[in-house]
Design a binder for these strands. Structure first.
Length: 268
DNA sequence: CGGAGCGCCTGGAAGC
DNA sequence: TGCTTCCAGGCGCTCC
């Protein structure tokens, strides 16, 4: 699930629930989500420290502590950050709980454990972030153009590639291409300036409303709202939607709104 | 360089 | 009903 809008929502939760608050105690219920750090070291490094202002970078949630190391969270496909009362019963997928000084609890909840938690000092943090492209929410038009310029591959894989643009996932990539009326098989190099303008504007609008909603909203006016329909139809023109695989990911598009490039026949 | 394929995990749905 | 297989909105790695 978690793409940029979800992680942005988790950042807000962390900010309102824990910023400036002391981490009293950390319980690791499943060490399988810890990366490069033991439960012991995690506790020793963070317990007793206050959380500073959290930040989102692409799909990463960066949680520095005052005078201590930085906690890095990545949510994979199924992760969440939950703020709740300590009395609330442990969910089966609660992997780590952080007890806060003001009688609240942050929980890293994740079914599949594809990603998890890291502990990083400044240089490590910089190393982890250095290959990421500009953040998709804040990139400006020229940064967007630069990120895509010179790429020889397809547009769908470029949008999904975190080192090109950070934050987009499979749902957002399809949503943006559909709104910009660009076929997922288009090559980056084939896009005109006008099409790039359109894609950038679409990217901004789509991200803004998804961030406001706290996730990619399953609205019926969005392509995303139709992905799981038995017989999905384009919410704009009523044409039957196509489904296929691009860049190894399930891809949905409208064969009428999103004109296929000449070389590639539309598949279904 | 880009892209395909696989693996990491878990669980729900579909298939037999 | 029960067992097996496939698939999912993440990413990193290898190989071509």
């Amino acid at each position: 699930m978690p793409e940029l809008p979800d992680v942005e929502a988790f950042r807000k939760i962390l900010d309102s629930c824990a910023r400036g608050v002391c981490l009293l105690r950390i319980d690791v219920h499943d060490a399988g989500v810890l990366n490069g750090v033991s439960a012991r070291r995690l506790r020793r490094s963070l317990e007793g420290r206050r959380l500073a202002e959290p930040e989102r970078r692409g799909k990463w949630l960066v949680a520095p502590t005052e005078g201590g190391p930085t906690l890095m969270l990545h949510f994979g496909m199924t992760g969440q950050l939950v703020c709740c009362q300590p009395a609330e019963p442990l969910h089966p997928h609660d992997r780590v709980t952080f007890a806060l000084a003001d009688d609240r609890q942050l929980r890293y909840r994740d079914q599949r454990k594809l990603k998890g938690l890291w502990l990083a000092d400044e240089p490590t943090l910089a190393r982890m972030m250095k290959d990421q492209g500009p953040d998709a929410l804040t990139v400006d038009r020229s940064g967007f153009g630069e990120a895509l310029s010179g790429r020889r591959g397809g547009i769908k894989s470029a949008l999904l590639n975190q080192s090109v643009l950070a934050g987009l996932g499979n749902l957002l990539a399809d949503e943006i291409l559909w709104r910009a009326k660009l076929h997922p098989a288009r090559l980056v190099g084939s896009l005109t300036t006008q099409e790039l303008d359109r894609m950038y504007t679409t990217l901004r609008r789509t991200l803004r409303s998804a961030v406001a909603a706290g996730r990619v909203p399953p609205r019926r006016t969005w392509l995303t709202g139709h992905r799981d329909d038995a017989d999905p139809v384009c919410p704009r023109c009523r044409e039957r939607l196509c489904g296929g695989r691009w860049a190894g990911r399930h891809t949905v598009w409208c064969p009428r709104c999103q004109q296929a490039p000449d070389r590639v026949m539309s598949r279904r």
